[in-house]
């Protein structure tokens, strides 16, 4: 029996999702044995035209990481969709937009102006910014179009499954590969990670008091948190309540709060909205009747960047997708 064909591809990504595959260490050999990798630009020399030459659906599964930021990324994933039986969005950027998705607070012009004109180290008296076409004396040079808005993979093509995380942990990657090989996949559209929230699996969750109430918000640098206590109990915002489990509580283990890279749990559409709702619910609950409206506002104003915090990984996948530019 022929081995199933597998492709890996990357878009606006950092390379960390590729490292995650390399971090399978010995397990990568098992994968290589069981499948036939037909396309992996980072590691193997196959070209776009090799993919074009394949029949529709010939690739059993394509793992695609990175958000969509340029026209050529969009073209490439559309081609892969056509040639693949299954598409798995791999990692936070592809799944939710990820950290590069924070660019949706701005647009191309504001980003170019900052990067090429106003940062203090740039000397650019003629205000040059990169162009899609440049005529140099020798000929024409081209660059791909840079979009105003970062998009998730499923805003660009139809996606079958999601592997969450920045980057996805090795055990979930192996589980996913095994499930695909054995044909034991859940329903289409599923996130290939546990259904529970991070709080449900977090070792600090058990000790969490029945009724949480935050009197004062603390930023992570302001206190030394007790490594046994729930961050919320200490006033540090942690997105565990609205984040899917499965990462192995990686940040928590380093005594740092969760920032939500695994995305929301199943029922949630908008991770940021859910997150701010969850946190708002427990702010000052203990004394809520005694607090004036002003007190309440003052407490909430201690959250200085709610949009950036609650949507840290998920702005492009949120209901609003991006900032509304004036």
């Amino acid at each position: 029996m022929a081995k199933p064909k597998v492709a890996f591809y990357w878009n606006a990504s950092c390379g960390g999702c590729e490292e995650a595959v390399i971090d399978l260490n010995e397990d990568i050999l098992k994968v290589v044995e069981a499948v036939d990798i037909v396309f992996w630009p980072v590691a193997l020399d196959f070209k776009k035209k090799d993919v074009e030459a394949m029949g529709d659906g010939e690739i059993a599964v394509s793992f695609i990481n990175g958000a969509i930021r340029t026209e050529e990324q969009e073209e490439m994933v559309k081609l892969l969709r056509k040639k693949s039986g299954l598409i798995v969005a791999f990692g936070s950027c592809s799944h939710l937009g990820g950290i590069p998705g924070l660019a949706n607070f701005w647009d191309r012009e504001t980003i170019f102006t900052r990067v090429y004109k106003t940062v203090p180290s740039t000397a650019n008296p003629n205000g040059i910014v990169p162009q899609q076409k440049t005529n140099v004396p020798e000929g024409e040079l081209t660059l791909p179009e840079f979009y105003d808005t970062v998009k998730t993979l499923d805003q660009t093509i139809d996606v079958d499954y999601y592997l969450p995380g920045c980057a996805p942990p090795p055990d979930l990657i192996m589980n996913a590969v095994t499930a695909i090989l054995e044909g034991k996949l859940p329903e289409k559209g599923a996130v290939l990670a546990p259904e529970k929230s991070l709080c449900d699996t977090c070792p600090r969750g058990e000790k969490k008091p029945e009724k949480l109430s935050i009197k004062e918000i603390k930023r992570p640098y302001e206190i030394i948190p007790d490594p046994e206590k729930c961050f919320l109990e200490e006033g540090i915002i942690c997105l565990g309540p609205v984040t899917r489990s499965g990462c192995g509580e990686r940040c928590i283990n380093a005594n740092m709060p969760c920032r939500g890279c695994f995305g929301p749990t199943k029922e949630v559409i908008d991770q940021g909205a859910k997150g701010l709702s969850a946190i708002a619910s427990i702010l000052g609950v203990e004394d809520e009747e005694k607090m004036t409206e002003e007190d309440t506002k003052k407490l909430i104003d201690q959250i200085v960047d709610p949009a950036g915090l609650f949507y840290m990984y998920s702005l492009p996948s949120s209901l609003l997708k991006r900032k509304r530019m004036a």
Partner: peptide
């Protein structure tokens, strides 16, 4: 051929992040 613009979108974020 690519740019992500960290210099810009970091504006507005909490410094420690």
């Amino acid at each position: 051929p690519e740019l992500r613009g960290f210099e810009k979108f970091s504006e507005g974020r909490m410094a420690e992040e």
